[in-house]
Nucleic acid binder design. Structure first.
Lengths: 218, 218
DNA sequence: CGCTCAATCTGAACAGTGTTAAGATTGGTA
DNA sequence: TACCAATCTTAACACTGTTCAGATTGAGCG
């Protein structure tokens, strides 16, 4: 079959900023990850297809297999970056406050904020069956994100390690469940900015209820 | 095109206990719902396909459309029954105990127990994009399940309606998040009975931490 | 500089999916 | 009994992920 000189499908500027080689892409891994994240952002987790990611990267449907094996491999890489971003957001939220309770509150808000701002990515991060669930780097990234919680919770509880683990599981469960239910529209619409702000206020009340300010007991 | 007498594909006894008519199934709706629930139980939410459900019911891939429109329609019906079962489980759990706190604890355990025993069904119930999310009966069933929580929570909190709503959101978020995280293996393996029992014990501690017995404060 | 070779990517195919349209079959009812 | 609306099938379409043989290429080595 004929060659296409230099351009062709790979020309929309969505895939590369650098010149543009022909047959060999050069940065296909990154291009595929970026394309996947774009799809997740636009269409959500259910909208992702491997072929569409390849299309956006300007390569054939078979190209991704050489870099990621299969769709799960690509999505695993996307999930890892998602966990990294989440962990960073949690650390940033805690570092801005002082006092364990304030840090935990800030982290809870940051967790749900992350989920509402990146629904597709968030859902994919927790869609084990679409990932290589036993991938070492994925498990590490997931644990690192969870660890950002535990450090703050340990500071708050100050009891035994077991108590800290229980409290961390409680905190994680609450914000994770709230985020999931919110994304499934159980707390009202989440597609407009106003609805999201209202949901964040509800979350604030929930956190205040479960972790009341010292002095205010129920 | 020839006919097949009376039997053929529809002969494994999986679809009907009654005689067995030929062209017309007779109870196709129920057969398709039962087949779908079986698939969800065996393969999880990701394993469901409309064609496989039709196959198990002994009909062609196009047959379901006449009863449910499309796959979302069928899954919506499955989800409705799931919510009904969940609501019933929550009511039963509460009715066995006395004292609002004990009722809430029992409901929380029942909620996660339901999720762990029927993972596929549970995941599908909350997979909005695979359902007809604005179906009136679905929303009603979902609300009814949530209501089973709210009544008990209201009894426990005893404050204003707004406070009760906040507390209900907190309780639902916690158990839902715990169930979701458990199903994604974040609290250890969930595929064997032993792992599940350990997870339920962790949940018990979490609930005790967030809703301590009156007298034991933190 | 010229060659080779491993990495990269394509093309074509396969089995599977959900959905639709047109036609066959049938049970209830007028 | 004859019809008709409900029910189901067949066939097709546009997708999907994955595989495999082969084309293309850049980088390193002689």
């Amino acid at each position: 079959m004929k060659k296409q000189g230099s351009s062709g499908k790979r020309s929309a500027g969505l895939t590369r900023s650098k010149p543009e080689p022909g047959y060999h892409h050069g940065e296909l891994q990154e291009a595929l990850i970026a394309a996947s994240e774009a799809i997740l952002a636009e269409q959500g987790a259910e909208g992702f297809t491997l072929r569409e990611a390849a299309r956006r990267a300007g390569v054939s449907p078979a190209a991704p297999s050489h870099h990621f094996g299969n769709a799960q491999g690509l999505l695993t890489e996307v999930a890892i970056r998602g966990y990294d971003a989440l962990a960073e957001a949690l650390r940033a939220a805690a570092s801005g406050k002082q006092g364990a309770r304030e840090k935990l509150r800030a982290q809870g808000l940051a967790y749900v904020d992350f989920a509402l701002r990146h629904p597709g990515r968030f859902q994919m991060m927790f869609a084990n069956k679409r990932l290589v669930a036993d991938d070492a780097r994925l498990k590490q990234a997931s644990r690192a994100a969870g660890h950002a919680f535990e450090t703050v919770v340990a500071e708050l509880v100050g009891g035994t390690a077991k108590e800290a683990k229980t409290a961390a599981a409680a905190a994680w469960s609450t914000v994770h469940g709230f985020a999931k239910l919110a994304l499934e529209e159980k707390f009202g619409s989440v597609r407009n900015e106003g609805g999201r702000r209202e949901i964040m206020m509800t979350l604030d009340q929930v956190l205040n209820y479960l972790w009341p300010a010292s002095g205010a007991r129920r």
